[in-house]
Design a protein around this nucleic acid. Structure first.
Length: 465
RNA sequence: GCUUCAUUAGCUCAGUUGGUUAGAGCAUCUGACUGUUAAUCAGAGGGUCCAAGGUUCAAGUCCUUGAUGGAGCGCCA
């Protein structure tokens, strides 16, 4: 493995200090002290903590000492010793300091004290340098790794589904158009419509809103696949839980029925929560202390307890008999509103809930139809605070039943010939679901707004950076 | 998209019933201090009160419109 001449802060903080010479490189968080001694908190993003560099100003030029301000980048060489102060186990007695890049304190926007999340969003190019975003980005990385590890260990195959898609029947919301046509003066057909035959792909194309349909094609050959990639929805959604560009994990499994689908979803999420508790302890402690005192307790609760599983019909009965006053009335056949889902998860059960067997009229055409003729085998996993974290279903694998639903929803068979082929040739029961990656990170970190768990959020009227 | 709240110093905010020269903490700068921990102490500088229009003798404050941001809701992951 590569050996660098400098050490990460994370490594040094876990090293037994014996006066050994070390070199560290990072960005200054704070400097304090007097003419006799200066304390520099240096952070390189390897861990939420900074390392304390102790410098005797007499050993360095006045110009250098003045340049060491919040945000400046330094290379420090010195002796790693046990700290005389009580705030940290080790510190570096600096012998040599090199200034890589100064940072004018009058114009550098980050200060040592707290900033609002809204302000930090305006300087998203610099916010990774804060404790909070460093921690978010490390947790985000750890969760991405854990997702691949989980599925790899289970023998799933990572399938790359297309980002540019030519299918417009997915029905998961408004799509972003992809075109190379001159939008000011597009070519027209004889009847005046835009002639997409002259476009790059020779047809109308969009950014994907889901990799599911292509994922099913993979599952019908490799048995168990998952996708993990960016997803785009051109919906004008202005909430702390929606992004126009987000990342989604979509496993798709041949031979899984709805029960196995729920088992996998529950095991998967619990694994990720346990992984975070075991591997992101420093960052989770930081979030628990700074943002949400109940975060770690809540994560443990999710990791250690079974999720509630119940049908839509039973949930409606609970809601009707709850005695609550609803802004939207509860009735069998209508979709559950946020207030209903929150009541079930946060008040009634106080733990995650998986709802299944929804009325077919409110769910997508591809969901498996139950014997009752009324419901389909969809499932939603509902979490406290963030609501729906997973949506999925057992898929309708019977050709005639699938065609029937497509006709009812006016979906053209000719546009979906390749999807229907899986039902024509060796069809099999299969299931899958979608996990919103950023919603997972919201839950794991306890952050309140989805725009603060992705490096560069894309939302209506905002595509800066 | 709907509803609602907000926008005052670099940041976070206060600003009373519309009334003289718009304040605080932090940050910055200067000085003090021999080990600090969001260091502390003393002083200084720092303002197009979101924009445009209106009411009024007088607007940061009231009205209208717009912009931006937050929250709730819808759509969903």
């Amino acid at each position: 493995m590569i050996q660098l001449a400098h050490s990460k802060v994370k490594t040094l903080l876990a090293t037994t200090p014996a006066g050994q010479e070390v070199t560290v490189k990072g960005w200054v968080r704070t400097k304090r002290g007097n003419k006799q001694v200066a304390f520099i908190a240096l952070n390189d993003g390897s861990i939420v903590h900074s390392i304390q560099v102790v410098a005797n100003p007499e050993n360095f030029s006045e110009e250098l000492m003045k340049s060491i301000t919040t945000g400046a980048c330094l290379k420090v060489t010195g002796k790693l010793v046990e700290s005389q102060g009580s705030g940290q186990p080790v510190e570096i007695q600096a012998d040599d300091i090199e200034l890589y890049g100064a940072s004018d304190p009058n114009t550098y926007p980050l200060q040592k004290k707290g900033h609002s999340m809204e302000f930090l969003r305006d300087i998203a190019h610099l916010r990774p340098r804060t404790n909070t975003f460093g921690a978010v980005l490390r947790v985000r990385h750890a969760m991405a790794y854990a997702i691949h590890k989980y599925f790899n260990d289970l023998g799933f195959c990572y399938l790359h589904t297309p980002i540019i898609t030519g299918s417009d029947a997915e029905g998961a919301g408004e799509m972003f158009k992809v075109t190379t046509l001159d939008i000011a003066n597009p070519p027209r057909t004889e009847d005046g419509k835009i002639d997409f035959n002259q476009d790059f792909f020779g047809k109308e194309t969009n950014l994907t809103v889901s990799g599911q349909l292509e994922g099913e094609l993979g599952a019908m050959a490799l048995s168990d696949i998952y996708t993990f990639g960016p997803t785009f929805r051109a919906e004008n959604s202005n909430t702390p839980r929606h992004l126009a560009e987000f990342w989604m994990i979509e496993p798709e499994m041949a031979f899984y029925e709805i029960k196995e689908n729920m088992d996998l979803a529950e095991d998967f999420v619990k694994y990720l929560v346990r992984y975070a508790l075991e591997n992101c302890a420093d960052d989770l402690s930081f979030f628990n202390q700074m943002y949400d005192n109940e975060l770690i307790d809540r994560l443990k609760m999710v990791a250690e307890n079974d999720f509630i599983r119940m049908t839509y019909t039973d949930a409606v009965e609970i809601l009707v008999n709850s005695g609550q006053k609803w802004e939207f009335p509860v009735a069998w056949g209508s979709d559950l509103m946020a207030e209903h889902e929150r009541y079930l998860v946060e008040k009634h059960f106080k733990k995650p809930v998986i709802l299944t067997n929804y009325p077919k009229k409110i769910k997508a055409f591809y969901m498996f139809q139950n014997e009752d003729g009324l419901t389909v085998r969809g499932m939603d996993v509902l979490f406290p605070k963030i609501g729906e974290i997973i949506g999925g279903s057992q898929r309708e694998h019977r050709l005639e039943k699938l065609q029937e639903r497509m006709h009812e929803q006016n979906i053209e068979e000719k546009d979906m010939w390749w999807y229907l082929d899986t039902r024509r040739f060796g069809t099999a029961p299969h299931s899958g679901f979608g996990l919103g990656f950023e919603r997972l990170i919201l839950f794991i970190t306890g952050m309140g707004n989805i725009r603060d768990v992705i490096p560069f959020p894309r939302t209506p009227r905002n595509a800066e950076f």
